[in-house]
């Protein structure tokens, strides 16, 4: 058990610089208690990956990361035999019988372990981060099922390797593809949305310490207003922080039309959105 209570989760994550909403803290606590993987969904830039890093820091665990992409396969995710080394071994031992050589070259020494196998081997605490799971092909999900439900990996030549110590698993997804029901059932589900005003203000203050309180408040309110608009891409927490940094760099001590108009590009990434937001916020009224 990593944590004793939900408050303990919030407090210790906060020490590492991750301010968790009650929903996040509760789910992390349960994932730890029930020993289940955590599937995190949400828009880009709300801190899905950061959460895994923060948990690893709190637990003083090694972070093992599997970055998914289209075409990631077994040999990238699970394990691979080190063919070159196997060949060397065979040519080194000329006078051996076939049986000796065969049993020998399929041993642990020649196994290259990839993130999933690394995460379940060994005794030190680990956090396994499977990032952007939705980018991987459907076949990889099947691969994950065995690892995530029983925390074991079967290597045909070696047998089944079972985790002596279960890693804390975090899967993230941007929902660009629907993950299979089988994978979802094995996980606790957490949706991280945009934080509430109060929490976001604390995040901004924490990440951009130089910004004064009232300006931080205004920044968060403007971002909140932008999120309520029907835009193609609404600004996320990462953009809020970027904007706060920009304002600090510009030396602005309060918001006005000119400052907002000049720096709106930090928050919004589409020209249509910038025009729309400009019209709604009356930026041209000056």
């Amino acid at each position: 058990m990593l944590f004793t209570s939900v408050d303990d989760v919030s407090a210790r994550l906060a020490e590492t610089g991750y301010l968790a909403s009650p929903a996040v803290a509760t789910t992390v606590f349960l994932a730890d208690r029930l020993g289940k993987p955590l599937l995190v969904e949400g828009p880009a830039g709300v801190g899905k990956t950061e959460l895994a890093k923060a948990v690893a820091e709190v637990a003083d665990a090694r972070l093992v990361r599997l970055q998914c992409y289209e075409g990631v396969d077994e040999s990238r995710a699970l394990y691979e035999w080190n063919h070159a080394k196997q060949l060397l071994r065979i040519s080194a031992g000329r006078d051996e019988t076939w049986d000796e050589a065969r049993t020998d070259i399929f041993s642990e020494e020649f196994l290259l372990s990839r993130p999933l196998l690394t995460a379940i081997r060994g005794d030190e605490p680990k956090v396994l981060l499977i990032d952007e799971t939705d980018k991987a092909d459907v076949e990889v999900e099947g691969l994950l099922l065995e690892v995530l439900s029983d925390f074991q990996v079967t290597v045909p030549e070696l047998g089944t390797i079972t985790a002596s110590r279960r890693p804390f698993v975090v899967l993230t997804s941007n929902a660009s593809r629907e993950l299979s029901e089988a994978l979802r059932r094995r996980c606790l589900f957490l949706h991280i949305g945009f934080p509430e005003e109060e929490l976001e203000r604390r995040i901004v203050r924490l990440k951009v310490p130089g910004l004064d309180e009232t300006l931080a408040k205004s920044v968060v309110r403007v971002v909140g207003a932008l999120r309520a608009m029907d835009l193609r891409k609404v600004p996320s927490v990462a953009e809020t922080i970027d904007w706060a940094r920009t304002l600090l760099a510009l030396g602005a001590d309060h918001l006005d039309e000119t400052v907002v108009r000049d720096s709106l590009g930090v928050l919004l990434k589409h020209q249509d959105d910038i025009l729309k937001a400009g019209a709604k916020l009356d930026l041209d009224a000056v």
């Binding site: 939900v6 009650p22 929903a23 509760t26 789910t27 606590f29 349960l30 208690r33 029930l34 289940k36 969904e41 929902a175 029901e181 979802r184 059932r185 606790l188 589900f189 957490l190 949706h191």
Partner: peptide, 29 residues
């Protein structure tokens, strides 16, 4: 799982219970 979550969280805070049940029972936003 949801029952285990209820056991782990208790009834002290209703919002935590809500999040706990949502995490265990739901699969999508």
């Amino acid at each position: 799982d949801a029952a285990q979550a209820v056991e782990a969280l208790g009834f002290a805070d209703r919002e935590l219970l809500r999040e706990g049940l949502a995490a265990t029972l739901l699969h999508s936003t």
